[in-house]
């Protein structure tokens, strides 16, 4: 039987390395068969690469003003990462004294600008770096969506270019003093995830919130995401089950659109040994609010979904030690 090999430390493989790169920090760097022909073989063999990435000191300097860094992850797409990130941002910034930043590292499908209602904005550069786009005084946002000539344009980039942009987001954006930096990620466990973890390794990531939907197909991907967090040493703050149950607006009966055929997120969290933060019901108005770029929590504060959101957000605050 053929099986996938996991021998190297995924964090030390550069984004543009040959297929079987042993990782630049490995003892074998520059010396294995796979290194033959790599343009950087001599550099690896000389031992220079055991030192840190030159961007890291700059990232560290910027990030020294950020108190807490939280990733929003999920293995699967379309489960509500961006919507949740936006709600989290809005909820944190409801307190005037709290400064929050949202960084969208989904390079190929940036949704954050639309969800926050700032899709037509652009990024301005100043002597202190790129200024984030502000939704309100204390909520700054950075996304590749602000840099495209039109929302129809696709970014067809391979890994190394995406990583370059992520490092710029971290070192060149003038975030100012932040209490929270929320990072919205694309689905999967690939370049963007490795890069963000690599660049923030020194400054420290406070944890990751993992979003899922109740069906097994999504949970499968989420287990992989939690496995990823363990491999790279990120603390999982907890799992949120989104789109959990749907209340018919006509007869008020609750039904399960995405049936938790294997016990849902709650059981998965228990099996994986991570905290379960709660479930948010599927409410069509959440998607509508996202399309129109308004805060669901502000528009429908009395809905059950809002209550669920607030409960989860309070738990996250508590875990982060507020």
């Amino acid at each position: 039987m053929i099986a996938v090999q996991h021998a190297v430390d995924p964090l030390s493989v550069p984004s543009d390395a040959p297929e079987h790169c042993p990782g630049t920090e490995s003892e074998l760097a520059g010396k294995t068969e796979a290194c033959a022909g790599c343009a950087n073989q001599d550099i690896c063999a000389s031992g220079q690469t055991k030192g840190p990435d030159p961007a890291l000191p700059f990232v560290r300097e910027r990030m020294s003003n950020v108190k807490r860094k939280v990733l929003v992850l999920s293995g699967k797409g379309g489960v509500g990462k961006s919507t949740f990130t936006a709600q989290l941002g809005w909820a944190f910034s409801a307190d005037d004294s709290v400064q929050t930043g949202i960084m969208d590292v989904d390079i190929c499908g940036p949704s954050i600008p639309t969800i926050l209602g700032i899709a037509s904005e652009q990024v301005h550069a100043s002597s202190s770096g790129w200024s984030p786009v502000y939704v309100q005084d204390n909520l700054g946002v950075m996304s590749v969506g602000f840099m495209l000539p039109s929302s129809k344009d696709a970014i067809m980039w391979r890994g190394p270019k995406k990583n370059g942009l992520i490092s710029q987001f971290l070192k060149d954006v003038d975030w100012g003093d932040l209490d929270y930096l929320l990072v919205d990620t694309p689905p999967g466990t690939s370049d963007e995830h490795l890069s963000i973890v690599q660049y923030l390794k020194e400054s420290g990531i406070d944890g990751a919130v993992v979003i899922t939907t109740p069906q097994e197909v999504a949970l499968q991907d989420v287990r992989r995401e939690i496995d990823f967090c363990r491999k790279v040493g990120i603390r999982v703050l907890g799992v949120v089950e989104n789109m959990s149950g749907f209340v018919c607006p006509s007869c008020k009966t609750e039904s399960q659109i995405f049936k938790p055929s294997t016990g849902g997120a709650k059981r998965m969290a228990a099996e994986m040994g991570v905290d379960y933060l709660g479930a948010v019901p599927l409410d069509p108005r959440i998607g509508k609010s996202a399309d129109y770029g308004v805060s669901f929590l502000d528009e429908y504060p009395d809905s059950p979904a809002s209550a669920a959101y607030m409960d989860i957000i309070d738990k996250i605050k508590q875990i982060l030690g507020e």
């Binding site: 996938v4 996991h6 995924p10 493989v13 550069p14 984004s15 543009d16 390395a17 040959p18 297929e19 790169c21 293995g75 391979r158 890994g159 190394p160 466990t189 690939s190 370049d191 995830h193 490795l194 499968q220 287990r223 992989r224 995401e225 939690i226 496995d227 990823f228 491999k231 790279v232 994986m272």
Partner: peptide
Amino acid sequence: EDSVVWRGP
């Protein structure tokens, strides 16, 4: 539940 953590190449 194994994750495949791979970069582009």
